[in-house]
Each structure stands twice: as C-alpha cells, then as structure tokens.
Design a protein around this nucleic acid. Sequence first.
DNA 1: CCAGACGTTGTT
DNA 2: GTCTGG
DNA 3: CCAGACGTTGTT
DNA 4: GTCTGG
Length: 246
Amino acid sequence: MQSKIGSLLEDELEARLVDETPLRASWNIPPGARVPILLEQADDDGALERQIIAARWGLLKPWNKEQREAFQWRTHNAQAETAGQKRTWKGPLTSRRCAVPAEAYYEWEKITEKDKRPYAIRPADGSMILFAGLWETWKQPEDEQLIVTFTILTGAAPDENAGGVLGELGRIHHRMPLAMSSEMASEWMNPVKLSEDAAQELLKRVYAGAYEVARGWEVQEVSNAVNTVANDSPELLDPVEPEVLF
DNA sequence: CCAGACGTTGTT
DNA sequence: GTCTGG
DNA sequence: CCAGACGTTGTT
DNA sequence: GTCTGG
C-alpha cells in the first residue's frame, strides 16, 4: 500500500488530522505499519466530524491482553463474504467502519513456489482509493494507552476473462481489497450503530460496487524492489517493461 | 454452565 | 466482549 | 505483504 | 515450520 502525508490528506479528504503523530508519506506500507485512516466521529461538541487518525494496519482484538498473543493473528484483511458471521469483525462492522485512503496498492502474482511478481494498482486518473475498512481499539498493557488498529475488507477478484483492468486483476490474484466511491464511503463511514442485518446489507452494497470502482484502475508491473520494505521511494511505483520473450 | 476460540491467504 | 462447543 | 530470523541450559 | 520485523 502507498499513502500520502497527513497534511496533504487533510485537503484531499476534507477531514481534520486528529492524531498529531507525524505521518510521513510512504510507498511501501506493510501490515503492522501506522498509516492514516479516515473515519467519522463526534467532535468535542458532539458534532459529526470527518477525521484522519493514525492507525496500525492489522486489527488487534480488544480482549487480547498480551501483545504477543494480540499480534499473532493475521488480521490485516477481513473476508467480506463472511465478515458478518465472524466474532472478530461483528463489533467493528456494526459500529466502527472506516475508509483507508491510498494512492495505490501492490499485489503479488504467484508465478511459482518461489517466484512472485509485484504489480502496482491505482486509479488511472490519479485520484485516491478509499478502501473499505474496520477499526478497533486495543489497550496496550504497559501504559494502558488505547491504540487504533484497522483491517481492510477483501472480496473475490473478478474473473480473469472479464476483460480490461478487471481481467488483469483477476489474472494476477484471486482476491482484491474492496474500494468505495466517495459517495459509498460517506455512507460506510457514518458512525451510527447498525444492526447486524443492516451492517450486512451495507457491506453487500460496498462489495457490489467494488468492481465498478476498480474499473477505473490501471495495473502495472513494478520492480521487485518493493519486496523489501526498507525500500521506500516514489520510484517503487514506476512500471517496468514486461519481458519480451523473443 | 464453563472453557476456549476468536483469522486470512494460499496451498494441498 | 461474544460466540461456539461440550 | 515479503524477508529474514529463529537460542539456551545443560550436556556431550 | 513459524514467528517477527519492517
């Protein structure tokens, strides 16, 4: 995943940067990293406000006491198909929905057991992606501090014969993160507590709209420099020429 | 009732 | 915390 | 997600 | 193999 610095996000997302923790731009964001997420909450006066908050990618379940056990599960994604039935996602789904802004994300195509090939995926028009996410708070045992964590919902990738960018997405991977239009994101982020049924319906609509959002993306093979998290520069998004075979 | 799990991706 | 399994 | 590490007391 | 770190 790739993300802009906080101040730029404030303008672009028309939201207030709440967490003062400096959020630097990054072009290589792994699970576990802190990145800005977008959510709606009541401000000090009780008015609904759109906020940008630094959050850890990888949802930590609030009942885990030890950091070791909290970090054990891979929770950076939640399956949209079953999220409504899973204990871990139910609470967040009814009450803590967020959007995760990104300019691009990476997907790895598995070629063989050891060979994988990274692609950068982003809106062709340079706009921001708003992934559908869920957030949660976790109390750090050492200092009782609440830290915000999040996960990104995923769905089945389109059929590889779909044609166009949807076909490309399906060809390189069988899953994809669910992105939202800005209108859908506004609905999604509304912090009203939903019933489980209503939350399920809302999620279905996000899922149903995800391919249409993805239709505006482009998929470009990039250098395997992105495989090493220490590499973090805008050049990671530069396309590499596909190998000519003859 | 109490005890124990609570997840995804990808691979088989 | 909340659900499932026993 | 991928890359890279993984370990200590006591016994041989 | 599995976990940690980034």
